[in-house]
Each structure stands twice: as structure tokens, then as C-alpha cells.
Design a protein around this nucleic acid. Structure first.
Length: 510
RNA sequence: GCCGCGUUGGUCAAUCGGUUAAGACGCCUCCCUUUCACGGAGGAAUGACGAGUUCGACUCUCGUACGUGGUACCA
């Protein structure tokens, strides 16, 4: 018997991947890798009404970008293929029938209208959502309430049916959750969930149990929203005779909206101005684009780092972890029980830390790649490399590199003259007029000598060097920001420096 | 309504019966810098409430409140 850890991520490709989903995948991945096991991707794609084409590939792409690609899944060969629920359709029915045969499930012929009628009849203030359960099932049209020959007749007449689990009465269903410990449920309060739909497709409940069994999953991670249906799954494992192979469960806490309440959803991102998807998602049905962390300039390292710290904590002071460190430090005991509100400010801080932490060659590669894809490719790689290391401290997102360094590549489109004018005078004009020829003849074009010539001249002309620096900055950058002025002059070279000074001097004269 | 899960500053959170209740983000002040940042120093800000157990409770138990999830032929 194998003891290899096998975790799985079972997303539904109905709308893409939001933060909660990626985090489930991440924790599954970290746990599997920590124990030298495999991480399996299993696609939940049998809801034809909601299926979104392209979503599966999108999920695979997101996981790859995050650096947590599954070892097995629809994107690659694996011993338990196929990994798409839709392609496993045939086998689920057999298991459902096996359950019926053993008395753990039954055929139900009720039409949607009949179901609605039952709910309507039983609905009250005390019970706003009546269930199909051991209280009501004998009043419904199913193989439990009908005589055997009638059931047989309906079946032969091809009457549409679903298969429902027969939840036992008066039983305490308990299971062990890796995060929450022992959890109890009263079987009387669990309804007879549909296992096989009228179209022959399994519901999640049946499919996930069958697949986890067949794929030999040892540890199942999912969101806390699945906790209420866990007792159904527990009984299924038991009824199918696989109790000893049941995986360990881990129900991850929810990621909540940063402001109000509730689970974080796609709409919150639009509303509050931050991404909730890993990468840009173009919904083929609505043609709507949802912005992703990647496109907004997040590094995948930072993304998984911030996600890992949302609901998990190492217990030590370290907060910035690379993937290897996450794997090493990760432990289920330190996963939180309570939901965590997402904080975009902290998310950006993580990215900033990662920009500073990244090897400068690596960082430069990524910046160049980004610029290339945006059609901005001007300078030589070694110049860009120098620029990147000079400005990286002031960049929070990868996209900031453009705005933070554009003045090192081209002359500013406009100059903030209003920042200079109030204190501009003839002395300052005279200073720059005198400085230009000095620069012109400066042989050693380095930060140090440029600065020395600037300060020496200021002393000679009895000007305050400090007061001249802001005008010079405006001349070179166009605005009140950027790296050291003399550094800028050195970077852009003598010709550009003189040109920009002249340009502003001319504009000030008008 | 019922059931499940949860609750330490604005946010992420440490603590696993005895601490001045860490740290980080954000915010504020100062320093550095005659730009914007980075960096450095400091500050404000936390145990939902009520009982009980105990010499002692943020920590254990119970209750209440609040939050959140579920209550579908959706996942």
C-alpha cells in the first residue's frame, strides 16, 4: 500500500480562478510538496449550463504562472486520466447504481414542479427551505415510496429520474478536519442530496468522492463553504465501501471582502479597485475582462507569498518567503480557522518587498519582457539593467518601472514650470547659462564631477546650490520626482542634459 | 428559521493558564534627503459580552451577541 501524499485541486471552470481558489490550490501544492507527494488537478466541468469555454486552460495557465503547476491533470499525462469530470461520466452512474442496489440510494422521479410544490406546501416561517429528507421522502415519488413493480415500470418507460442518497436517521456523523478537529453533524438535518442528475451527470458530491477514491487522493483541501456537505461525502465513502481509504479533510477559511462582509467575489475587485483573479480573464460569453494580478504588475513570487500569509502564519517574524521556504515552513497546524479579509495595501507591500529582493538580473529580464510586450523597447539591455537597479526602490508594481524611469530614456513631454517660476530669478538664469559651457567641456561625465562642477559654480556665483537643484530636476525629469539629479545627468549623457536645460530655459523666458 | 464554522488593534496576526498581549501592513510624528521614494527612530490603536473552572484566563467550559457559510437536478 502506498503512503504517498496526493492532494487535489478540483475547480469548476465556470468563471475562472479567484483568490480563494488559488489559495486552495497553493495550500494543496505546499502540503503535497512538503511531504514529497503529488498535486493533482481535477476539473469539475459537468455543469453544462455554466460551463465557460477556455476556463480550463485559464486555470492551468494561472497555476503555471504561480509556479504551482499540478503533477497530474488534463494538461499532461497521468496514471489516473482522464482528469475531466465530463470525460469520466460513464463510471459515475455505475457507482450510483451500486448504491441503489445496496439500499444506500434510491431513484426519485419527482419533476421540478413537484419538488417546488412540496417545498411550497411545507414552507413556513420556521422552515423557509424544506428539504427532501427522511421526513418528506415517503411522500414523494421515488423507489422508496413506490411499490417495486411501479418503480420498475417507470424505469422501463424511460421516465426521467435522479438518484438520491438515503441519509440515515438518528445518526451522529463525525469526522476529523485537519484544521478544525472533530466536527459533528446530526444526520436528521442532512438532506437526501442528488447524486446523479436526470441528464446522467453526477453532482459534485458523487463525482468528488468517486474521483478522490479512484485517483487515490490522500488529503482533500477545499473551501470552508463545503463544510455543510461534508457529512454527505463521509456517508458516501462509507456506503461505497471505501471508508478506510477516505482522505483527510482540510476545510480552508474563507477570504473575505476587505470592507463589508461576505466572501470575496469577482465584483468586489471591480468595485474596490484591485484584482481578485491571478491573471486577466476574458469571459467569452460576456466579453468582459477581469483584471489579474499578473497584468497589474505583480510578481508570481509575491502573489503566492501574500496568498500563503492569508490564513496561514509561520509563527516566526519572517513574512517574505519564496516557494521553497513556504514548502519548508508550511504546516496545517498553523492554518487559521477564521476567515481573513483581503488587504490590497499589504498585497502591494509584498510585491514591493519582492521587487527589492529579486536578483537584479532576473528583475531586469522581467521588466524588459513587460516593456517588450507593451511595445516599449528603446535602450540597450545593460542600460536598462542599470536603470532598473537605480529605480527599483520606488517601484511597487512591475508597471511602475515605466513611469519611474521614462525620463531616463526620453525627454519629458512637459515640464512642471509652475514648480520653478515662483522662485525663479535672474541669478538662477545666469547660473544655468554659466553652467552649460562648463558641462560642455567636462571631460569626465560622471555623477561626481557633474555634481562638483555644479556646486563649485554655485559657490563662485554666490548661489545656494540647494535652491538650484529643484529647477535642475524639473529640467531633467519634468516633475518633482525621481532619483538623484546628478545621477540622472550621468545616465542620460551630456547632450541630453544640455538639451533639456536649454529647453526649459527657453520656456521660462517666454 | 434551522444547521455548521468562526471571533486578539482599521487589516494580517503571535501567544498554546502566569508576558509591560510580539511582529507586519496602513496611519501619525521626527530624522535622513533642498524632489519622490528607500531607509532609520518613535507614536496612537487589540483580547465581543456575561457567567463559571482556577491561586491566576486572551488562553479551558457554558451561555449570549455578532460575523460567516450552507440549507438546489450549482459548485
Amino acid at each position: 500500500m502506498s503512503t504517498t501524499v496526493r492532494t487535489r485541486f478540483a475547480p469548476s471552470p465556470t468563471g475562472g480562478l479567484h483568490l480563494g481558489g488559488v489559495r486552495t490550490a497553493l495550500f494543496s501544492y505546499l502540503f503535497a510538496k512538503k511531504h514529497g507527494g503529488q498535486f493533482v488537478l481535477r476539473i469539475e466541468d459537468t455543469d453544462q449550463n455554466r460551463y465557460v469555454p477556455g476556463a480550463e486552460q485559464y486555470i492551468i495557465d494561472c497555476l503555471e504562472w504561480c509556479g504551482i503547476s499540478p503533477d497530474e491533470g488534463p494538461h499532461r499525462e497521468g496514471p489516473y486520466a482522464p482528469y475531466r469530470q465530463s470525460e469520466r461520466k460513464a463510471s459515475y452512474k455505475d457507482y450510483a447504481l451500486q448504491l441503489v442496489e445496496n439500499g444506500f440510494a434510491y431513484y426519485a422521479f419527482d419533476t421540478p414542479a413537484e419538488l417546488e410544490a412540496m417545498r411550497e406546501a411545507l414552507r413556513s416561517e420556521q422552515n423557509p427551505s424544506p428539504q427532501y429528507d427522511h421526513h418528506t421522502r415517503m411522500q414523494m415519488r421515488n423507489s422508496l415510496s413506490l411499490p417495486a413493480h411501479e418503480t420498475q415500470a417507470l424505469l422501463e418507460a424511460q421516465m426521467p429520474y435522479v438518484i438520491r442518497i438515503k441519509m440515515p436517521a438518528n445518526e451522529s456523523i463525525a469526522f476529523q478536519d485537519m484544521i478544525r478537529g472533530e466536527i459533528h453533524n446530526d444526520s436528521n438535518l442532512v438532506d437526501d442530496k442528488v447524486l446523479l442528475k436526470a441528464d446522467g451527470m453526477p453532482t459534485y458530491h458523487l463525482a468528488v468522492v468517486v474521483d478522490d477514491y479512484l485517483m487515490k487522493i490522500t488529503h482533500a483541501f477545499r473551501g470552508e463553504e463545503w463544510l455543510p456537505s461534508a457529512p454527505v461525502h463521509i456517508k458516501l465513502w462509507e456506503y461505497l465501501g471505501w471508508k478506510n481509504e477516505m482522505p483527510q479533510w482540510a476545510h480552508l477559511p474563507l477570504i473575505l471582502k476587505p470592507d463589508g462582509h461576505g466572501k470575496l467575489s469577482k465584483r468586489d475587485g471591480d468595485r474596490l479597485g484591485f484584482p481578485v483573479f491571478a491573471m486577466d480573464w476574458l469571459d467569452p460569453k460576456t466579453e468582459e475582462i477581469t483584471k489579474g494580478f499578473k497584468e497589474l504588475g505583480f510578481l508570481p513570487e509575491a502573489f503566492i507569498n501574500l496568498l500563503a500569509l492569508l490564513g496561514w502564519h509561520s509563527g516566526e517574524e519572517q513574512e517574505v518567503f519564496n516557494k521553497a521556504e513556504l514548502i519548508q515552513h508550511f504546516s496545517m497546524e498553523r492554518v487559521h480557522k477564521g476567515g481573513a479579509k483581503f488587504d490590497y495595501e499589504k498585497a502591494k507591500w509584498f510585491n514591493h518587498e519582492w521587487i527589492k529582493k529579486l536578483d537584479s538580473h532576473d528583475l531586469c529580464e522581467r521588466v524588459m519582457q513587460l516593456w517588450q510586450s507593451n511595445g516599449f523597447t528603446t535602450a540597450q539591455p545593460d542600460y536598462i539593467s542599470k536603470v532598473v537597479s537605480l529605480v527599483k526602490d520606488r517601484c511597487t508594481l512591475l508597471n511602475d518601472f515605466y513611469s519611474q524611469s521614462i525620463y531616463l530614456f526620453e525627454s519629458p513631454a512637459s515640464f512642471d514650470l509652475e514648480a520653478i517660476r515662483p522662485k525663479w530669478n535672474d541669478d538662477k538664469q545666469a547660473f544655468f547659462m554659466a553652467w552649460m559651457p562648463i558641462l560642455q567641456t567636462l571631460n569626465d561625465w560622471t555623477l561626481g564631477s557633474i555634481e562638483t562642477s555644479f556646486k563649485d559654480l554655485a559657490t563662485t556665483l554666490n548661489c545656494k546650490a540647494g535652491e538650484l537643484q529643484l529647477p535642475l530636476r524639473i529640467m531633467l525629469v519634468g516633475a518633482k520626482h525621481g532619483i538623484g539629479v546628478f545621477q540622472i545627468a550621468e545616465m542620460i549623457g551630456k547632450e541630453n542634459t544640455l538639451q533639456r536645460i536649454q529647453k526649459v530655459l527657453a520656456q521660462l523666458a517666454n
